[in-house]
Simulated scan of single mutants.
Amino acid sequence: MKKHNFSAGPCILPQDVLKKASEAVLNFNGLDLSLIEISHRSKEFVEVMENARNLVKELLNVPNGYSVLFLQGGASLEFLMTAYNLLKVDGKAAYLDTGAWAAKALKEAKLLGEIDVVASSKDKTYNYIPKNYAIPADVDYFHCTSNNTIYGTQIKEFPKTDSLLVCDMSSDIFSKQIDVSKFDLIYAGAQKNMGPAGTTLVIVKDSILGKTGRKIPSMLDYQVHINKDSMFNTPPVFPVYVSMLTLQWLKDLGGVAAIEKINEEKAALLYAEIDRNPLFKGFAEVEDRSLMNVTFNLTNEEDKEAFDKIWNAAGISGIKGHRSVGGYRASIYNAMPIESIQVLVNAMQQLEK
């Protein structure tokens, strides 16, 4: 039976990418050596790293003056690296609290300085994005999380600020068009839309670095990684390679503009059923609904056993909601085909019947 993978991450990847990646593990580029056993200093892997970085620049129209890095540690390490590299000694930063990951980011930053939480949606279990908040003029940077995987909310319009703008785009990077020039630092774990867990994409404006007045450990210093072309230490060769393949797949599909249109169609199909079907209700506020993570609950919890049997029988996987929200979460990242969305819609309609 075909599986329909709605996992929140590590998540679905294109089948063509998985096939090419598996072949490379056995025999990479006809070398009769595995991708994961060749030197990361070899010209073959240096070419992989360069291709991956260039695809990021091309797909997101990254302006001159920005560096693209593939690092390790996930977004969780970026929570700390952001503060180390941008928060001045005795400085202050502003954070928008829109979910569990945003809260973890500000927790790490508090280790290094004063943090001003400008707004929070914790009062309603993070089911909306705060609006009309003020960002203080005296902060070193403002940090936000573009898409909240657990709660199914997404920032539709980013605030204007005179301070540096930092964004964790782990779960919606490459899913829609963005103007990179409006941001000073973007970071994203690979395991949602780009590749397997193990590498983290960082896009940083070069001119903002080296101004904190603090000593930064080498592994946490963006400038060190820029100087070494993402190879200060042995890079995660397999995740970088699979990310390169996924970015090439996206380019061949027509790029970010093309996938954005597809993603809008997929989300519209599923949200329409949630709103139409009296047995279901959406969790997130309508205006803040995510195009990547669709969160919903049953109107009557007594239907849970019956619905779980239906979607399991249909080959659906990974739609159980996060424990803090309950219900269901359908993660519909770039590689999720619309046919799988229809299978879930059919399951919801079967429960209704």
Rank of each mutant, 00 (worst) to 15 (best):
M49D: 11
K43I: 12
K88T: 02
E157S: 14
L55V: 06
D140I: 07
L111H: 12
I36S: 10
Q72F: 15
E44T: 10
D90W: 03
A134E: 10
A93H: 00
K19C: 00
A119H: 02
A75K: 08
Y66A: 02
E47C: 10
A21P: 05
Y126H: 08
A109T: 09
P159T: 12
P63Y: 10
A102L: 10
A105S: 11
D90L: 00
N51G: 07
P63W: 02
V118S: 01
K131F: 05
E47A: 13
S76A: 15
Q154D: 05
L26S: 08
S39L: 03
G73F: 03
L13F: 01
N51T: 06
T145W: 03
A100L: 11
V46Q: 15
A105Y: 01
H40R: 01
L13K: 04
I155P: 08
A100K: 07
Y66C: 07
Y95A: 13
L87A: 09
G65V: 14
Y141Q: 00
D16E: 11
D138S: 07
V89E: 06
I150A: 12
Y66S: 08
F28N: 00
F70A: 04
E157P: 01
N51A: 15
V17N: 00
Y84S: 08
S34E: 07
K88F: 04
P14T: 01
E37D: 11
L77F: 14
Y128I: 01
L112I: 02
A134M: 04
A102T: 05
L59F: 02
L106E: 13
T98E: 05
Q72K: 13
L87G: 08
A102N: 09
K20C: 00
N132W: 10
E44L: 12
Q72L: 06
K107H: 15
E108W: 04
F158G: 03
D16T: 13
G65S: 06
Q154I: 03
P136H: 10
A137N: 12
W101R: 02
S76M: 10
S146A: 15
E58D: 08
Q15V: 09
L80Y: 15
V56W: 07
G99V: 04
A94F: 04
S67H: 04
S120F: 14
S121M: 01
L13I: 01
Q72S: 12
N61F: 02
A24H: 05
L26T: 14
D97R: 09
I129M: 08
A134N: 13
G74A: 13
A103C: 09
H40P: 09
A21K: 07
A134D: 14
A134P: 04
P130L: 03
A102D: 03
H143K: 02
L80R: 12
Y126E: 14
N127I: 04
P130M: 06
L77A: 14
N61T: 11
K57E: 14
P14A: 09
N61H: 10
A103M: 09
V46K: 15
L31Y: 06
